[in-house]
């Protein structure tokens, strides 16, 4: 159970990214966060694993206070939280295998890992993770030799290496075309069905309807909606996205993977 209470974030330049946001995420949920660009979705996700330190508020996860964790404790928490990024955030000049192994750094011996020495079990785990996302044959390619969809799969494999209980996905499909979007979200859905909690920010409403078990919406840093995906009708949509907005359908093609 992840509990977020009165979360507020003000950046040093004065931008108020989050205003008093509170909600709860039960284990096994697929929570989707929606909202316009700049509405605070990324800040919210990054506050959960404290890549960004919130200004006020409290985040507790199974009675552990994330917001108060000292650095060593924080790293132990972070290694149980996988994260997938919009821009994939791979080390482009390193091989796919190295990028996947990077997900295991939080568990590895800090000194041996600096020399690039990994336990054999970790290597097997990496091969399995790559097989799971269907790109085991690319293990020795450089990351920048892969297409966008493949790079995001590497990103998911890297998150899988952490054996996470919670996956944060920050616009995981915003840089991909609709077909690939379904394929990536399909992997996240599978992980969710295996028991991982997924918190994912998304742009396209049809994807929200298809994958989310629950939705919250942010507007200018304020939570303006919390409920089931089916509850978002045209009126709600206009409220969240503004009067000008038009709903765009990503695609109706089902994921093949």
């Amino acid at each position: 159970m992840l509990r977020i209470q009165n979360l507020t974030k003000v950046y040093p330049n004065g931008t108020q990214a989050l205003k008093d946001v509170s909600f709860e995420v039960k284990d096994g949920e697929f929570l989707v966060v929606i909202g316009l660009s700049g509405s605070g979705k990324s800040t919210l996700l990054r506050c959960i694993n404290r890549l960004i330190d919130p200004t006020e508020g409290k985040i507790t996860w199974d009675d552990i206070d994330i917001t108060a964790a000292p650095p060593a404790e924080l790293r132990r928490i972070r290694r149980q939280i996988g994260m997938v990024f919009q821009q994939f955030n791979l080390v482009k000049r390193s091989s796919v295998m190295t990028n996947v192994m990077n997900g295991r750094l939080g568990y590895a011996n800090p000194w041996l890992s600096l020399l690039g020495i990994w336990p054999p079990t970790d290597k097997q785990r990496a091969v399995k993770a790559l097989e799971r996302v269907g790109i085991a044959d690319k293990a020795s390619s450089r990351a920048d030799a892969l297409s966008g969809g493949q790079q995001q799969r590497v990103g998911i494999a890297r998150a899988l290496m952490q054996e996470p209980r919670l996956v944060l996905a920050d616009e995981p499909v915003a840089s991909l075309d609709p077909v690939l979007s379904h394929s990536i979200l399909h992997y996240l859905e599978q992980l969710n069905k295996e028991g991982m909690t997924v918190i994912c920010s998304l742009h396209f409403l049809d994807l929200v309807h298809r994958y989310a078990t629950r939705v919250i919406a942010l507007k200018d840093g304020i939570k303006v909606f919390e409920g089931l995906p089916a509850e978002i009708d045209r009126a709600k949509f206009k409220e969240i996205y503004g009067e000008e907005a038009q709903e765009v359908r990503a695609t109706t093609v089902e994921a093949s993977a």
Partner: peptide, 26 residues
Amino acid sequence: DPGPIEALQASGANRMQVVRFAVIPQ
């Protein structure tokens, strides 16, 4: 690119590991 640094921090890597695996390869 700051992206990989963020990604490694998010996976619980320490400072040295971030330099070794996200900065140096770049």
